[in-house]
């Protein structure tokens, strides 16, 4: 946004100005913009998965299992519904917080703190995937399979494994991505380029993966 645009008009006008400007449409490094566009495209993938799931859930001829019963955990003799998912969700949201802090320290070029916070974020992510693996094992033990389950419509298991699996894949890739970038930070790779944009770009991806989880959580576990 140029000085002049700020002076002469409101937000709308400055948007128009950016888009009609030479050289570039957004005042951000290209890597960040590219990540944004990728995430919008990825949003379409997740939306299609979720819409597909909701659609088969409504059209399937068999009754749908009760999520609060299927996803309950037996703790100290009590059946607690959705407790594992609550913990997993909490962990993932916390990891968004540590990621945001890493981005903050990237502005100060504080290599140690950036790397530490990113490793912590990755650790949270890894534990999320671990708990997901635990949940999968538990459900498989109870006879839930992609092609059928004892509780009702076979689409329950199909959609569950497919969607959480696809999301889990995203988290796993994110853990890898975070660890690689954190290691490069420690090795001073970005000092050589004098460019720490990558931290923010990684952060965008990570926040996205968290955000998607909130939707999966709402549509799969709470509905």
């Amino acid at each position: 946004m140029s000085e002049q645009a700020i002076k002469t008009g409101g937000h709308l006008q400055s948007i128009v100005h950016d888009w009609s400007d030479q050289k570039q449409a957004f005042h951000v490094p290209w890597g960040k913009l590219m990540m944004w566009i990728f995430l919008i495209s990825d949003t379409f993938i997740f939306s299609c998965f979720l819409v597909g799931y909701m659609s088969v859930r409504m059209t399937t001829t068999d009754p749908w299992p009760y999520p609060s019963e299927v996803f309950a955990l037996n703790l100290f003799g009590h059946t607690v519904p959705l407790i594992l998912i609550a913990i997993m969700t909490f962990i993932l949201i916390t990891s968004s917080g540590t990621m945001a802090l890493a981005v903050r320290y990237a502005h100060f070029r504080d290599k140690k703190k950036i790397a530490l916070l990113m490793y912590i974020t990755a650790l949270f992510g890894a534990s999320f995937v671990g708990m997901q693996a635990f949940e999968w094992t538990k459900l498989i033990g109870e006879g839930v399979r992609p092609w059928g389950n004892p509780f009702g419509a076979p689409q329950f298991g199909s959609a569950f494994f497919m969607i959480t699996g696809f999301h889990g894949l995203h988290v796993s890739v994110g853990v890898l991505y975070l660890s690689i970038v954190a290691t490069k930070v420690l090795n001073g790779v970005y000092d050589k380029k004098n460019n720490y944009d990558i931290i923010e770009i990684t952060g965008l991806y990570w926040h996205f993966v968290d955000l998607v989880w909130v939707f999966i959580f709402a549509f799969f576990y709470l509905w």
Partner: peptide, 29 residues
């Protein structure tokens, strides 16, 4: 393309599962 290909991607994944591991996303009895 970036907004439309995801739908094809998702349908390809779901159909592969129907085909290979016997899920019933698109397959009625």
């Amino acid at each position: 393309g970036l907004f439309a290909f995801p739908a094809l991607f998702v349908s390809a994944v779901m159909m592969t599962f129907d085909n290979l591991i016997g899920t019933s996303f698109f397959m009625p009895a």
